[in-house]
Design a protein around this nucleic acid. Sequence first.
DNA 1: TTCTTCTATAGGTTATACTAATATAGCATT
DNA 2: AATGCTATATTAGTATAACCTATAGAAGAA
Lengths: 232, 232
Amino acid sequence: MFKPIKNKKVYEHVIEQIQNMIIDGVLKQGDRLPSERELASQLNVSRTSIREALRSLQIIGLIESRQGEGNFIKENIDETLFEPLSIMFMFNKDKPEDILDLRIAIEVQAAYLAAKRVTEEDKKELENILKKLNKVEKEGNEKIRAKYDKEFHYKIAKITGNYFIINLLNNISSLMESFIIYAREMILKAVDDKSLLIYQHEKIYNAIITNDSEKAASYMREHLELINTHLM
Amino acid sequence: MFKPIKNKKVYEHVIEQIQNMIIDGVLKQGDRLPSERELASQLNVSRTSIREALRSLQIIGLIESRQGEGNFIKENIDETLFEPLSIMFMFNKDKPEDILDLRIAIEVQAAYLAAKRVTEEDKKELENILKKLNKVEKEGNEKIRAKYDKEFHYKIAKITGNYFIINLLNNISSLMESFIIYAREMILKAVDDKSLLIYQHEKIYNAIITNDSEKAASYMREHLELINTHLM
DNA sequence: TTCTTCTATAGGTTATACTAATATAGCATT
DNA sequence: AATGCTATATTAGTATAACCTATAGAAGAA
């Protein structure tokens, strides 16, 4: 008979409004929001509520607060996922290897899609990275080796053009580095037969440039499984 | 050469302390935090700062605020990723199909791992779901069909025991449902040859119960690619 | 016992005052 | 003309106090 009154929290309303303004294109990346006081008066709520909303938007990576300047829609939202993934990792600390399996999921699909979508320009870039990688593979410097290795995998993700894949891979890498320090270097040291790694990279590369998506995926899986077994 | 001076915001300190208490095991899932006023006095900061910290922790899904009761460490953090993924989706609205490729990434790996880790009990459960699915496939009700279809895929993710995979799949499903309403029903309607779907599900099932991870992965990919093409 | 009401305490919201960082403009020195 | 300084306005960051609202549990009434 009697209808219940509204319930939603004020700060939730504020979050919603700002999100909508972004969806509708009123606010774009890099734009500055009205000042907290102005927002408060425009929405007719207290500045505290505005701030709680802004704080939330900041944590999920949507805006950036700069004291003395204002609140801005983030240009680069590549780290959006990092915090939540870290949280999941925290509660999952018994099984850190799970993150490695997630990485395989992403990278295998990345290789598959890359083989389908690779352009001529991509092929050249990928070839360059591979050449550099093979060159330093014979020298001693682990760090440089790790750098190009990372670049190779990252480039493949880039070729897919899939924002989620690029982003997830980035975040997984960050997470791995935070928790398993120097993971990559350790892995590379653990693998005795360096030429095996070179060979695997080349197989992946060849599959991608010949648009053989199935093979690209399975070679990538083979490559990452090898690395995983050495990590355990 | 010159190092920047410290700056950290007060609420960031608060967040850090609470996170550390969780990592160190002082606070466990379901535990109640001290009241806001008590936290404020214990940490010697204002309640405003405490609240901004708590609000942030709430948004990333770490705690839950219940008015009149208190703030609690979340029991079930399955929705942790949803918000950030939505944000990414917002900025990526030109290419909604990217989420489908991410889904393939997750599910292909899920099938691969499931084939390796499946137990006898899992096999029975999966078989039951498959039987129900085949049964309703011939009847008309799309909704029930969609329900069991979803259950089949979810069970495979569950078998992996990988928290990230289960969680990501959940979130991707939510996201798909939010943005592509009734996606699953639409897909099922679009695929003329129902028996093809049955056949694909059975191939995946057989690969998993015979521990053939390679085949499980490739059949799963085939299955999802078919669905994707019908969605575009 | 069962139901209602009261009460203490929790989070939710507002208002106000102050602190700290930043950009800008204007002025002075060189 | 370039640099350095200072005052000022504007912004976010923090603190405090008061009050609103939801909840659980105690107290009381039936």
